[in-house]
């Protein structure tokens, strides 16, 4: 343990020599990086939290749905750029995202129908196991059909803006803005539309909602489609940001997003977003100031510590023990 402490010391950038202003710039830069990453986690985390809220299951395959979204975007990119050479980047991105949303929505709808719906209301661990099975299936399906190698694409958005020592890439702005717009739209759907009301009713009490005429099956299906669509956007953003896709991409961001959902309080939509942003920030700040190797350890450790003090997450409803 002491040894680890020393490496942390060594990893620190030259903070003593740097001036105060430089330190501040560095910090802001890390905040921006963290915000970008956190937006992606937040988008995925919403899918976890919605599904958990409505049917109380951890959808382990959600990370792989995100990976499918990334692959859909990648394939659309390849097809479009080779068929229409001069296609504008904005249009290209839009089509990538839209097709990704449709395709992954369709996948998640099918998965819910086949693997989760027949087990609804039975044993709690049964859908968890089918979800893990689906996660294994999806990543290996992509490995088999698209090959095990990393798939790199050229940089889509390369513009960079400088504000003093702070650099903001256009792609970061696109990610943060798009996330904000989607969240607003999403908030509107959940809080202001009949569909959202049906979702909230189903979440509160599935049986009662059904008795009052809510089509519970349809509502749950729509929830899965919405979760997948947001994950697909995250997948496309991830591809745009890092410029590479791989069949294993579902796991790590998936677990991080799940962590984010739990950190924010699983079942709570704002919690998922806040959790996502927090995890993004922890990751980038820890990498910058401590050690990049232990950034995931830090994330998980902070999750454990938060849960010890707030057992239902930051914004989760405290679980009242009904005696």
């Amino acid at each position: 343990m002491r040894k680890m402490g020393r490496t942390i010391q060594e990893m620190r950038p030259h903070r003593r020599t740097a001036s105060r202003g430089k330190q501040m710039d560095y910090f802001v830069q890390q905040l921006i990086n963290g915000l970008t990453l956190g937006s992606i986690y937040g988008l995925i985390a919403i899918g976890y939290t919605m599904v958990y809220g409505i049917i109380g299951m951890i959808n382990f395959a959600h990370g792989d749905i995100f990976m499918l979204g990334g692959f859909a975007a990648l394939i659309v990119f390849l097809v479009l750029t080779s068929l229409f050479a001069g296609i504008p980047v904005a249009l290209l991105l839009l089509v990538m995202i839209l097709v990704g949303m449709l395709v992954t929505g369709l996948w998640n709808w099918t998965i819910e129908r086949i693997a989760y719906r027949p087990l609804r209301g039975s044993f709690r661990l049964a859908p968890l196991i089918t979800a893990i099975g689906m996660s294994i299936t999806l990543s290996n399906f992509i490995q088999v059909t698209q090959g095990p190698r990393n798939k790199p694409i050229p940089q889509l958005v390369t513009d960079v803006y400088h504000f003093g020592d702070i650099t903001i890439a256009l792609k970061q702005i696109v990610i943060v803005v798009l996330t904000a717009v989607l969240l607003a739209a999403f908030w509107y759907i959940v809080n202001k539309t009949p569909l959202g009301r049906a979702q909230r009713a189903t979440e509160q009490d599935r049986k009662m909602a059904a008795l009052l005429g809510v089509d519970v099956d349809r509502t749950i299906s729509v929830t899965f489609i919405m979760g997948a669509a947001l994950a697909a956007v995250a997948g496309a953003m991830y591809l745009m940001y890092y410029g590479v896709s791989s069949f294993t991409d579902g796991f790590t961001p998936g677990v991080k997003a799940f962590t984010a959902a739990v950190l924010g309080g699983i079942g709570s939509l704002p919690g998922a977003v806040i959790g996502g942003l927090l995890i993004g920030l922890i990751e980038s700040l820890w990498s910058a100031y401590f050690s990049i190797e232990y950034k995931d350890v830090a994330t998980f450790a902070i999750l454990a510590i938060v849960l010890i003090f707030k057992p239902t997450g930051l914004l989760g409803r405290p679980e009242v023990e009904k005696v």
């Binding site: 086949i114 089918t130 689906m134 290996n140």
Partner: peptide, 16 residues
């Protein structure tokens, strides 16, 4: 290559 794919599918099918 198909080992894990079939493993995942088997998990789902047995559970169903």
């Amino acid at each position: 290559l198909y080992r894990m794919l079939l493993f995942g599918l088997a998990m789902v099918i047995v559970m169903l």
